[in-house]
């Protein structure tokens, strides 16, 4: 690896196609995410919400754009020196968790690019990527920190002890927090994704009107949101006159309450210097406010990621790939995708 430590990251675990170039796991040189919005504008045509086909069509153009953002052509060579050396030192891709048909496109693309350029391939855990997303924006953070990773597919509490060293403290035992937002939103007839819709509607609702249950779990740092979702449906069935705003506000209150309380408890348990939000749910305004408030009251720093770092992106995959390459070397080319890959801790 050259001194620049330039890693091309590729992320296709779900319904966003993303590629990025990151230097030494810390400096984002370029980052392209093909969200629906710029898809329609930039690549044209109807874009299916899902995986396989869209990723096959989009991965190469998205990689090409990410390379261009780093001053490189599709062959990985500098625009100013097209016969010069390859400007990428390793290719990283998400190997899981995610949808198998989607993951395979990124994995196959990354391994083929690694072969083409004769550079190492690194297979990255998507969830570990989210931990580094937090670090990408807070390089000065003092460790250990507790990371609350809450998205449509996952809800985890992780202790980040040192760069590349982490422990999983707890996880959801049924539905993810973001999934609960999406499902309640659609049940109420709101748009998708549901998080922003509930966030917006809750402002005009009474969060104290309905006391939805806060599920306790066997593991003190675990989460459960399935019962809450069912309680919302049950309440609306029994009270057809209730407004969506009041349901949204009371529901959001219950979710945020549990997320913040568990994170605070975890931070105290491990003696954390700060706490960090990650994943799509980190965009929720009530969660951000409560999170910051609660940790400030305890004299701890809270790190709130930008919107781009909350959602799936490939910069975090490239960063995780860099640190993984340093720690444990390349991933063999006979690696496949692991749709149900867990985050277990670094040791």
């Amino acid at each position: 690896m050259t001194d620049r430590g330039r890693v091309l990251g590729i992320e296709t675990s779900c319904d966003e196609t993303a590629a990025a170039v990151v230097e030494r796991g810390r400096t984002v040189v370029s980052s392209i995410v093909s969200s629906q919005v710029d898809l329609h504008a930039r690549y044209g045509g109807v874009v299916p919400e899902l995986a396989g086909r869209a990723h096959i069509e989009l991965t190469l153009p998205v990689v090409t754009d990410a390379l261009a953002g780093a001053g490189l052509d599709r062959r990985g060579r500098s625009f100013t020196d097209p016969d010069g050396p390859i400007g990428i030192d390793a290719v990283a891709a998400t190997i899981g968790p995610g949808l198998i048909g989607a993951l395979l496109v990124g994995v196959s693309t990354a391994k083929a690019l690694a072969l083409a350029w004769d550079v190492p391939f690194v297979g990255v855990n998507h969830l570990e990527g989210h931990l580094y997303a937090a670090m990408l924006e807070a390089p000065e953070a003092e460790l250990p920190v507790v990371v609350l990773l809450a998205s449509g597919g996952h809800t985890l509490l992780v202790a980040l002890d040192a760069p590349g060293s982490y422990r999983v403290l707890g996880a959801t035992v049924d539905d993810a927090a973001g999934e609960a937002f999406d499902k309640v939103a659609r049940y109420l007839g709101l748009g998708y994704p549901g998080g922003p819709e509930i966030d917006r509607l809750a402002v005009s609702g009474d969060a104290a009107l309905i006391r939805f249950p806060r599920a306790s779990t066997a593991g003190v740092f675990d989460f459960s949101f399935s019962g809450l979702k069912t309680a919302v449906v049950s309440y609306v069935r029994a009270h057809p006159e209730v407004t969506n705003a009041d349901v949204a506000a009371s529901f959001q209150e219950a979710v945020v309450d549990v997320l913040v309380a568990r994170t605070v408890a975890a931070a105290e348990e491990i003696g954390a210097r700060g706490a960090c939000l990650a994943g799509g749910v980190a965009a929720n305004s009530l969660l951000r406010a409560r999170f910051a408030e609660s940790f400030a009251a305890r004299g701890l720093v809270s790190y709130l990621p930008s919107h781009a770092m909350c959602t799936d992106n490939a910069a975090m995959i490239a960063a995780a790939g860099y640190f993984q390459l340093q720690r444990s070397g390349p991933t063999p080319l006979d690696a496949g995708a692991v749709p149900d890959l867990q985050l277990r801790g670094s040791k």
Binding site: G98, L99, G153, H154, D175, G178, E179, D182, S226
Partner: peptide, 13 residues
């Protein structure tokens, strides 16, 4: 292993 919701990843094996 615990059976969690596959809504987000569409499929668990």
């Amino acid at each position: 292993e615990p059976v969690t919701s596959p809504t987000f990843t569409l499929a668990h094996r």
